[in-house]
Each structure stands twice: as structure tokens, then as C-alpha cells.
């Protein structure tokens, strides 16, 4: 089992490293991730939202529905924790803490 696992890790690592050979350079200012929508956010953030911190203006203004979905996820996780850790004395008999 352990050798099979190590073989799988090595194959996965080799495939991923082969995939990185065509990735853009680290710190390239003209990489595709930095060239489409993020200059728009940087240039119009103060004009649209009057916030100097661009990260918070994108988080709460431009992509506010994303944050709403995140709070839904946290609420669901909290409900799941409460429902899992609740004591059920009658249905399951004896329970230890």
C-alpha cells in the first residue's frame, strides 16, 4: 500500500511539473492573470467605491455576492458542527464525551 502510494505521488508530481514548463514566469507583469480584469479594478476602485484598499473594494463591492455565498458556506458548516456534536441520549443509548 505504501509503495503504491509513493508511486502515485511520484507520477502525480511528474505530471504537474511537466505542466508547469509552459506556465508564465514568476513575477511577470504581463502574465495573463494580471492583464485582463485586475487593471480595471485597480484604476477604477477609488472612483467607484472611494476605498484605497483594492482588495476590500473588490471583496465587498465588485464581488459582494461571492462574499454572501461564503457566509452561507460558513453558516452551513456551523450548523453541521452543531448537529453532529449534539448529544442524543435517547436514540443511541449510552454515549461518552
Amino acid at each position: 500500500m505504501k509503495t503504491l502510494s509513493i508511486i502515485i505521488q511520484v507520477l502525480l508530481g511528474a505530471a504537474l511539473i511537466y505542466g508547469t514548463l509552459d506556465m508564465p514566469k514568476w513575477g511577470d507583469p504581463h502574465s495573463p492573470a494580471a492583464s485582463h480584469v485586475s487593471p480595471y479594478y485597480l484604476q477604477h476602485s477609488i472612483e467607484h467605491t472611494a476605498t484605497p484598499n483594492v482588495v476590500t473594494s473588490v471583496l465587498a463591492d465588485y464581488r459582494g455576492y461571492d462574499t454572501l455565498g461564503e457566509t452561507t458556506v460558513i453558516f452551513t458548516a456551523g450548523m453541521a458542527c452543531i448537529l453532529l456534536l449534539k448529544r442524543r441520549d435517547k436514540s443511541q443509548g449510552k454515549r461518552h464525551v
Binding site: A33, S38, V55, V58, L59, T67
Partner: peptide, 15 residues
Amino acid sequence: AMQYANPLPHVLMLT
């Protein structure tokens, strides 16, 4: 925009 880091991955990773 070339003077500041890209803010979009920061926002996504904050979530």
C-alpha cells in the same frame, strides 16, 4: 496598474 500587485487572487483566496 503595473505598480501594484494583482488584487483578484487575493480576494478569491481570502474566501
